[in-house]
């Protein structure tokens, strides 16, 4: 490739407004409590309270409520709210009656199982098998990181867009027509391979055939869109290559082979077709383009 960067705008100098992260303590606590879920035990009880499993015999003229050994969770709403409310506070062996729209119901409580949630322990965290996370403290920090990342993901796109626009606008590039033409050709070849896979000829595709696949109405529109996209992506690629030289990032054939394996698994595609749709040159080009985003993204994370 002959194209190159003449002068580069430092992305760290781009003015960004990064909002402060606000922790959702309730959600964090809820997630911590999930640790205990696999260790919940059900113990024999005497009086039914909300959250207990109860086993009841019921008698009613309504067949839905004329059953023996009915099991439900009190207050869960999974059986019938009035009956569940009636059972709350009952002792094993006790009988109560209620009248609903469907008729009267006599309920006898046969058994109660009370939910016991054990206190959180480090061993529960260890059991998750998360690398480097062994204690409750570690897990809390991990969840905090996850929450932070999710919050960042909401604003990440806009911040990346701001950086990209500024870097592209304030840097200078020498772009060779030959490089650009090659990219356009590679991308159109890729589209051609994909359309061929579906029994179509790219150049002859109708607006209906493009719909839902590529956001154009004709081959001519596709060529224009590809030309525009490749102009921008060529500059992104050069930036990605520059950053890669700085931080040691590299992409090779082994990465490609791994990518093809994953592609085949994910899309249930045969290897030959996967290589045709995603040739090495495009994979490599896209990887360096993405690297520019990764570098900017890391910078945003570090400053969030």
């Amino acid at each position: 490739m002959y194209s190159r960067i003449l002068s580069l705008k430092d992305y760290k100098e781009v003015a960004l407004t990064i909002p402060a992260f606000v922790l959702d303590e309730a959600r964090l606590e809820e997630e911590m409590q999930r640790l205990a879920n696999p260790y919940i035990q059900w113990e024999e009880g005497n009086t039914a309270v909300a959250g207990d499993i109860v086993i009841c015999d019921m008698a009613s003229e309504n067949t839905r409520f004329s059953k023996k050994q009915v099991k439900f969770v009190v207050g869960s709403g999974m059986f019938q709210r009035e009956v569940e409310a009636l059972v709350e506070g009952m002792k094993v062996g006790e009988q109560r009656e209620t009248v609903t729209e469907g008729g009267s119901i006599a309920v006898t409580l046969r058994a109660v199982k009370t939910r016991y949630v054990p206190p959180l322990k480090d061993s529960m965290v260890e059991h998750l098998g998360l690398e480097g996370i062994y204690t409750l403290r570690d897990y809390r920090d991990y969840l905090l990181g996850v929450q932070k990342k999710k919050a960042l993901d909401v604003i990440r796109y806009d911040l990346l867009h701001t950086i990209e626009n500024a870097v592209l606008r304030e840097s200078e590039f020498v772009l060779y027509k030959e490089d650009w033409q090659l990219l356009v050709q590679q991308e159109l070849d890729r589209c051609r391979a994909m359309s061929r896979r579906e029994g179509m000829v790219l150049e002859e595709m109708t607006p209906e055939q493009f719909q839902g696949r590529i956001p154009v109405k004709s081959y001519a529109e596709l060529v224009i869109m590809t030309q525009n996209n490749c102009w921008d992506s060529l500059r992104r690629y050069l930036l990605g290559c520059y950053y890669a030289q700085e931080d040691g990032f590299s992409v090779g054939e082994s990465d490609y082979e791994e990518y093809i394996r994953m592609y085949c698994t994910q899309w249930h595609e045969e290897e030959k077709a996967a290589r045709e749709i995603q040739p090495y040159e495009i994979f490599r080009f896209n990887a360096y383009c993405s690297h520019a985003y990764d570098v900017w993204s890391r910078y945003i994370e570090e400053n969030y």
């Binding site: 999930r34 879920n37 919940i40 059900w42 959250g51 499993i53 099991k71 969770v73 869960s76 999974m78």
Partner: peptide, 13 residues
């Protein structure tokens, strides 16, 4: 999946 796990913890049967 988490919602189902919570449900399973509440209604184990």
């Amino acid at each position: 999946s988490k919602i189902l796990e919570d449900l399973e913890a509440e209604i184990p049967f």
